[in-house]
């Protein structure tokens, strides 16, 4: 691993860490619910869960306001909630209801909340990178100090658009943070079989400050993101973070139904379970004497109540009608 480009010695402090722990828990429990709904056949479409990767979304988005932009991926539930989207609008959307974030027209792979600067999960691998870079261009022209973050996986690093965007972002000094959530798999293929060299080295080749970090260490992600986002706000241009992580669930929840053989070992998954970012941060807070077992129970209870409420909200909501579709294709124009 090369020397540090994004020097950091910031810490969020225990209260902020606790809030981030709760946000990670909300993502995990919301997705556990959606995973169960998927496996039971209740969901109309597939879900790609981010369990194990929550620290990256939560730590990065902790530095952002609603005026900043996040472009996301098909695995976007965590980014949606981390950026301030509500569990109600997420769960209702994935259940295909009119009260969902996108009125039930987008689904899991397209959860979007523009009022929160969440410009969308995206069903095209790499699609969110271009959109986030465009939002960064918009921010630069507006000149109000907004920034944009593109989250993407190691799979998307193989898309040409990443190289194109890195080149333009450096040339134009865009207020952009590129965050590669390196979870080791491009869908069902191990990263080593589809990615040559180190992804971070590609970013370095464009002359961008780049850092490779443990993506399951929330404080480490938070500290590096603090520097990168500060640079972007000050007009110093884009940065690149490669955050090593692991998805504890499959590429999509339905995969057990069609896979003929596992593509990763139980041992590998178990090994990564020991590095789960959520118990890891909880343990850290306990060590800091900032959290007790009772506090953890209270956090879990809050989150469970929020998920339960959101699920009930989704169940009680109506599916969207055709009028919503016809008014959602063009502005002031019928399709």
């Amino acid at each position: 691993m090369s020397q540090s480009d994004l020097h950091h010695n910031f810490t969020p402090g225990p209260e902020r860490l606790k809030a981030m722990l709760e946000r990670m828990l909300l993502i995990r429990r919301t997705e556990e619910q959606l995973g169960a709904d998927s496996r039971s056949g209740e969901l109309p479409g597939n879900v790609h869960l981010c369990a194990g990767q929550e620290a990256i979304a939560v730590a990065v988005c902790d530095h952002l306001s609603d005026d900043d932009y996040v472009g996301s991926t098909h695995r976007g539930h965590g980014h949606f909630l981390a950026k301030g989207g509500s569990a109600r609008s997420l769960i209702a959307e994935v259940h295909g209801k009119s009260s969902g974030a996108c009125g039930g027209l987008g689904g899991s792979m397209h959860v979007t909340d523009l009022s929160k600067g969440m410009i969308g999960a995206n069903g095209i691998v790499g699609g969110g990178i271009g959109l986030a870079a465009g939002a960064a261009l918009s921010a630069q022209v507006a000149g109000q100090g907004q920034v944009a973050v593109a989250f993407f996986g190691d799979g998307a690093s193989s898309q040409g658009i990443l190289s194109e965007v890195m080149n333009i972002a450096v040339l134009w000094k865009l207020p952009l943070l590129l965050v590669c959530e390196y979870n080791g798999y491009s869908e069902f293929s191990a990263s080593a079989t589809v990615n040559a060299g180190l992804i971070a080295d590609r970013a370095r080749a464009f002359g961008m400050p780049t850092e490779v970090i443990d993506g399951n260490d929330l404080e480490a992600v938070w500290a590096v993101a603090a520097v990168a986002i500060d640079r972007a706000r000050k007009g110093e241009g884009p940065s690149f973070i490669e955050a090593k992580t692991y998805r504890l669930r499959g590429h999509l929840e339905a995969e057990d139904g069609f896979l003929q053989a596992p593509y990763r070992s139980e041992g590998e998954i178990d090994q990564w379970r020991t590095r789960d970012p959520i118990p890891r941060l909880a343990q850290r807070l306990v060590e800091l004497s900032a959290l007790t077992a009772t506090d953890i129970e209270a956090l879990e209870a809050n989150v469970a109540a929020e998920v339960k409420d959101a699920l009930q909200f989704a169940h009680e909501s109506e599916p969207p009608g055709m009028e919503r579709v016809l008014s959602s294709v063009f502005v002031d124009q019928r399709p």
């Binding site: 932009y69 699609g127 271009g130 986030a132 261009l137 022209v141 658009i161 080149n167 333009i168």
Partner: peptide
Amino acid sequence: NTPISESAMTGMAVGAAMAGT
């Protein structure tokens, strides 16, 4: 002027528009 990078150009144009530009 952009580089010859149509994937980035079209994607960025949409992202900028979405962000209000």
